[in-house]
Computed example of a mutant assay.
Amino acid sequence: MSDWLTVTPGDAPLIVAFPHTGTDIPGAIEARMVDPWRARKDADWWIDRLYAFAGELGATTVRTAISRSVIDVNRDPSGQSLYPGMTTTGLCPTETFDGEPLYKPGQEPDAVEIEARRTEFFDPYHAALMAQIERLSANGPVVLYDAHSIRSHVPRLFDGQLPQFNIGDNGGVTCDPALTAAVEAACIASGDSHVVNGRFKGGWTTRHYGQPAKGTHAIQMELACRGYVDEPAVIDASSWPTPFDAARAAPLTRTLRDVLTAARDFAISQRA
């Protein structure tokens, strides 16, 4: 396996994907960027740590260490927007969530470079995901859980404060409604805010692999960062990201354990 791609196989019919926790940027690319901190600002900070318990449930995990500013493995490789009419970032982003340029003038990747990055990073990541889906599907239905987070306030992307739990199944298309209901129930039990198919309905991974009729149930969870770290009023290089604190994150971790357990148990029930 590549040094930037980590696959930890489990035996349960559950795969947890981490497409945006990476912060690695090849030196030749970083040298063309405006600011190294800005290039990493929009990572899904500490999500792989937050779900560190996944292996205890028998889940398989797939994680890329490559920053989403190099290539976003949760975007449609054709470049088509997942949210037409709404602000979003592309396959190889040229700006942050806040609209700040990532590259120095004239240093943005062209079509040839974008295709090269896709071949080097995007394709192997998805080949790894597909290999695990096929391995586990040999014994019956599986759940693919795409794990994400974002700051609670990003005015350019959404109004107001994001709910704590943002569940996406692309309007009920990518998984059996029973899976969404089970995940939602675990979120409701936490007492925190939640929404199903709100601002985040599921990215390319969820939409591409979610084929419940064929036994692959895909669901996305977008967490508001405030549930596990303190979010500073001013986001800059001195304040963000906030260091991960397991004790601070413990209440959310307990809920997420219930969420993943519900997802795993749903898949097991489909094999009965």
Rank of each mutant, 00 (worst) to 15 (best):
L260A: 12
H194F: 13
E184P: 00
H217N: 14
T64D: 13
E120S: 08
R271L: 14
T242R: 03
R40N: 10
I15Y: 13
R40C: 00
G171C: 12
T119H: 10
A246I: 11
G227P: 09
E184I: 02
F200D: 01
H194E: 00
A182E: 09
T206S: 09
D76T: 08
G210W: 14
D236S: 07
S67V: 07
A249W: 05
E222D: 01
A185M: 01
R118L: 11
D98H: 02
G99A: 02
W46I: 00
R248K: 15
T6M: 13
P212F: 08
H20T: 07
F53C: 09
I114L: 10
A116L: 10
E113M: 05
V183L: 13
P141E: 10
Q161M: 06
A131D: 07
G90R: 11
L157C: 07
H126R: 12
C175L: 06
P19F: 03
E56M: 03
A213V: 12
V183T: 10
R63A: 12
Q220L: 12
R257Y: 05
A28M: 03
D42A: 09
T94I: 14
P243Y: 00
D44K: 06
T261I: 00
T6H: 15
P177A: 08
T255I: 11
D98G: 01
L179A: 08
L144Q: 06
T96K: 02
W4L: 13
A213R: 14
K104G: 08
T6R: 15
P93R: 06
A17I: 14
E113N: 03
R135A: 11
H217S: 02
R32Y: 06
A127Q: 12
W45Y: 07
A116P: 08
V229H: 04
Y209A: 02
I133A: 14
K201C: 12
D3R: 09
E56H: 01
W240V: 11
D265A: 01
I66G: 05
V229T: 14
Y209H: 07
Y103S: 02
V16D: 12
P232W: 04
G27S: 14
T253Q: 15
D11S: 13
S137K: 11
A246E: 14
A12G: 04
Q161W: 01
H153P: 00
A250I: 08
M1V: 08
I268G: 04
A246M: 01
I114P: 07
R49L: 15
A233T: 15
I133K: 07
V196E: 03
C225F: 00
V183H: 03
Q211C: 13
N197A: 10
P105W: 02
E120Q: 15
I219G: 05
V259D: 13
L144F: 10
L5H: 03
D123Y: 01
S69V: 07
